[in-house]
Simulated assay, not measured.
Amino acid sequence: MTRLDLGPIGVTLDVRADGGHLADAAMLEGLGYSAIWIAGGQLATLDPLRDVIKATEAIPVGSAIIPAWMHPAEDVVALRRELEATDPGRLITGLGGAHGDRPLRTMNDYLDRLDTADPPVPAGARMLSALGPRMLELSRDRAAGALPLLVTPEFTAQARRILGDKAALAVMEFVVLEKDARLARDTVREPIGFLTRVGGYPQNLRRMGFTDEDIAGPSDRLLDGLVAWGDIDTVAARVRRHLEAGADQVVLVVRPTDPDAVPHAEWRALADALIV
Rank of each mutant, 00 (worst) to 15 (best):
G20C: 10
R240N: 12
E244L: 10
A55P: 05
G97P: 01
G199Y: 10
L149A: 14
D248Y: 06
R221S: 02
Q249S: 11
E57R: 15
L79V: 04
D24S: 13
E84T: 06
T234N: 01
D180Y: 07
L114K: 05
D248I: 04
V239P: 00
L205H: 00
G209V: 04
G89T: 08
V254F: 06
A44G: 13
D109Y: 07
D248P: 01
L150W: 02
T12S: 11
Q249I: 00
E154N: 10
A168F: 09
A55S: 08
A123I: 03
D220C: 06
L274F: 10
S219D: 05
V227M: 10
A269F: 00
D5P: 04
G20M: 11
A181F: 06
I38W: 02
E213Y: 11
D233G: 05
R189K: 07
V198Q: 10
Q42P: 00
A168D: 04
L22V: 07
R189V: 00
A144P: 00
D47L: 15
R81N: 12
W267I: 01
E266V: 01
V262Q: 12
R161G: 06
D14T: 15
V227E: 08
L243N: 05
V198L: 13
I59R: 04
W69Y: 14
G209W: 08
Y33N: 04
E213F: 10
G145Y: 01
I66V: 09
E244K: 13
V171S: 12
R80E: 11
E190W: 11
R113A: 15
E213R: 15
A237F: 09
P148Y: 08
A167T: 02
Y201D: 05
G30S: 13
L169A: 02
P218R: 05
I53Q: 02
P48D: 08
S34F: 03
D165F: 08
D101L: 14
R142I: 06
I215N: 00
A216I: 05
P120I: 08
A17Q: 15
N204I: 04
I275E: 09
G41A: 10
D112A: 14
R161S: 15
D248G: 02
R182S: 10
R134G: 07
V276A: 15
L83V: 06
V76M: 03
D220R: 08
T257Q: 07
M1E: 13
E190T: 12
D141R: 13
W69L: 13
K166V: 15
A117T: 05
M107V: 07
P48R: 03
L83T: 09
G7F: 05
T116G: 03
V176L: 10
R207C: 09
R189I: 02
Q203H: 14
W37N: 05
A236F: 04
L131Q: 00
T257M: 03
Y33H: 04
L104I: 15
A35E: 13
E244P: 00
L91W: 06
G30P: 04
S129V: 12
R3D: 06
V239G: 00
R113L: 15
A216D: 12
M107R: 02
G199H: 09
L195F: 14
L274T: 10
V52Q: 01
Q42M: 08
R221N: 03
G20N: 08
R140T: 04
I192M: 05
T257S: 10
A144E: 09
A143N: 03
T187K: 03
R197M: 11
F210M: 03
P8H: 14
P191G: 06
G193M: 12
H264M: 14
R197A: 13
